[in-house]
Write a protein that binds this DNA or RNA. Structure first.
Lengths: 248, 248
DNA sequence: ATAGGGCTGTTGTCAGACAAGTCAAGCCTT
DNA sequence: AAGGCTTGACTTGTCTGACAACAGCCCTAT
């Protein structure tokens, strides 16, 4: 039983290595050489095979460059930055990486039937009753509100009870921790919108201020929508970007 | 000498496996299970370790999904289909695909020294004189302006003379046609901004209307910035989206 | 001076083994 | 008969140790 509640989830060697190695790479300059694999493997406490699998993911991401018989090097930064929008991660993690501390305010959690828009977003027929968990909150940095987020999740995936007292505001993080259903990708629509009276108050901006609006559908591997979210961002605090490949 | 030109380069086991496995995956349907690793490794004539490294690249690309103790499966094709922002293409092409006809208005072409912001965007030092080609225009659908674009390209890449009389407004298309320099990717920043007086007039929207602003740097393969562009989009005409992978 | 041969350090690949997770069939208990 | 538990087969995850292939350098013989 208690294993379901275990909070410090066991991270597999691969994941640990991915974290540690990622941090190590971040601390190096482009072009710098990594220690040889046997050394690195011993330092990290894993086998060379495991280390190599992790390294391959970094190579695939363009973070590392390997040269047979020579060594492994940190790639140019250009693509490293590519961890923009293409990887979905909790806002807190994103903020943390650039050294910002976030707090959650105006947290509102309720179970209710989905609205028409939400049903559409969740890929559910309009005529059925669709009970969902709705989590709304404002993310602040210091005293400055920077984002207004609302997640809507069908009760089949998450209920109010699943949000413990220590819920810190990230629905995505919670879903990832549970590991079920398996999440694959999020389709995020991007648009601009003027702040109406409600958002002006909540985000402490003038009415009519331009906000960045992201509408996202989080898919599981069986292509069901697990989470429908609408987020508003105050310009200037987060730098969203995306790497676009040229059609070759 | 001729070994430098040898065409049929010896492909390492990993590369061969990548090809063969890629073809095999393409021939399967989403959700189908691959043979177990030991079997597959023997069939492909490589060790399990090598096979696993190849598989990991496919996992990283989102083509395969592995479940410990269960098996390896072909991921849903969802992500491949969605040509969102991840592929850079001329706006006209994008519009054409959804059945819209675009026209170019207020086209302005000039050669001039780059501004400070533009120098920064192009990755050039602020103190040098940097002559650039600047192309500004408004894209309309019918009589409705939908986007305001400005491309800035160093004269080393493109001059006013290169834009023939039949220039239709897409700098990207022109660069692609020339094929030189080879383009790799574009880093696009996304933000929201209120329309000032100038853009309100050009885009025929009220002052203060929320616009989507994309600032992009187009890189060549040697990581030089070929094109620095700033675009403003009127909400509601284009639906930008991006597929975001879940960090697993 | 220069081409060639080794030496050393690195990544690439291999083989075999065991650990850990998943699932279902079958046994046992109730 | 129903439900829970055990067992075993199957799969991916990780480990160990070894050798092959490649790049770069110094040193030598020509």
């Amino acid at each position: 039983m208690s294993d379901m509640l275990s909070y410090t989830k066991v991270r597999s060697p691969r994941m640990q290595v991915e974290d540690v190695l990622g941090a190590m790479i971040a601390s190096l300059s482009p072009g710098e050489q990594l220690p040889p694999e046997p050394t690195l493997a011993k330092d990290l406490g894993v086998s060379r095979a495991t280390l190599r699998e992790v390294m391959r993911t970094f190579v695939e991401r363009g973070v590392l460059v390997r040269r047979h018989g020579v060594g492994t090097f940190v790639a140019s930064r250009m693509q490293v930055i590519a961890n923009g929008l293409e990887v979905l991660e909790p806002l807190e993690v994103l903020a943390g990486r650039i050294g910002l501390d976030t707090t959650v305010k105006e947290l509102e959690i309720e179970e209710r039937p989905a609205t028409l828009v939400e049903k559409a977003g969740l890929g559910l027929p309009a005529e059925v009753e669709a009970p969902v968990l709705s989590v709304t909150r404002v993310i602040s940095i210091g005293e400055t509100p920077v984002a207004d987020l609302r997640d809507v999740v069908p009760l089949t995936y998450l209920t109010q009870a699943d949000l413990g007292s220590q819920f810190r505001g990230s629905v995505l993080e919670l879903l990832l921790q549970r590991g079920e259903p398996l999440l694959s990708a999020s389709r995020t629509q991007i648009m601009a919108e003027s702040a109406d009276a409600k958002f002006a108050r909540r985000l402490n901006v003038p009415r009519g201020a331009a906000l960045l609006r992201l509408v996202a559908q989080l898919y599981s591997y069986d292509e069901k929508v697990v989470d429908f979210s609408v987020s508003y961002f105050v310009p200037g605090h987060f730098q969203f970007h995306v790497m676009r490949k040229v059609q070759g």
